[in-house]
């Protein structure tokens, strides 16, 4: 059940809202979307743990119905679908959001049925866990990059290409000075990437078993003995 693709973690949270409340919340979200109120998402931007995230409020009539053979959904509630791609472990994400931007979360999940508020943290943890849906297949185009790395890489590319064209015909001494200035400009972007540290022992064990199974498969294909099977980690 992979919720993890390298440095990215997929969270899916589906929570009920009274239908009339949902109509109101859609207006509230509309307000949040307006550039003039963009400060309301400043906490999210500063946390910088998210690649992309979305909220979709779906009224009972809005569930896709493709033909007559499909029964019409009859639901008491509207549902808020939240899908997020974040960096770090589940607990880190939930902890950080609860502690850093509780008022923001209380706004984004305003009057969702059963929403306990973002603080205290234990009821909030339980609410998220209770309403979370597990991902079956998760793909990231850059498992070794956090959103911070993607943004940093963009700065590097821009600075580097501008530097390259600017210094093309420079004298060596002037080039050296310009290069030092480039490093100064990019000093917060000189870290390197590598695979994620293990954030979940269970997930690491699953991945290790898959790897071993794949190897065993390869070896069987080439006529050699299969590798030892079985996980080596215990939770």
């Amino acid at each position: 059940m992979p919720n993890i693709a390298g440095k990215a973690f997929a969270m899916n949270l589906i929570t009920p809202i009274e239908r009339w409340q949902a109509a109101f919340n859609k207006i509230q979200f509309w307000a949040i979307r307006q550039p003039i109120l963009s400060f309301s998402l400043r906490g999210l931007v500063t946390l910088s743990m998210i690649h992309y995230a979305r909220w979709a409020i779906v009224q009972p009539t809005e569930w896709p119905r493709l033909d007559e053979s499909q029964p019409k959904e009859k639901l008491h509630y509207a549902y808020q679908l939240f899908f997020s791609n974040f960096n770090g472990s589940w607990a880190q994400y939930v902890d950080s959001f609860s502690v850093a931007i509780p008022s923001g979360l209380n706004l984004l999940w305003f009057r969702n049925v059963g929403w306990p508020k973002a603080v205290p943290e234990q009821p909030f943890h339980r609410y998220v866990e209770h309403n979370e849906v597990w991902t079956s297949h998760y793909y990231s185009a850059y498992p070794m990059a956090a959103s911070n790395d993607v943004k940093s890489a963009q700065r590097v590319k821009q600075a580097l290409t501008s530097f390259a064209s600017r210094t093309k015909d420079m004298e060596a001494a002037a080039f050296e000075q310009a290069y030092n200035e480039l490093l100064n400009e990019l000093q917060a972007d000189l870290s390197q990437m590598a695979p994620t540290p293990i954030v979940s022992l269970a997930n690491a064990a699953v991945e290790e078993r898959m790897r071993q199974d794949a190897e065993a498969g390869d070896e069987q294909d080439s006529g050699r003995a299969p590798a030892m099977m079985g996980g080596s980690h215990a939770e």
């Binding site: 440095k7 910088s48 880190q92 790395d149 870290s191 390197q192 540290p197």
Partner: peptide
Amino acid sequence: IRRQFEFVQQQWVNYGNDFRLGND
């Protein structure tokens, strides 16, 4: 232990993303 020591050890000592320092 998980939220305090292990977190500091894993995310802040052996990794750098919270400081925007990649895997340093």
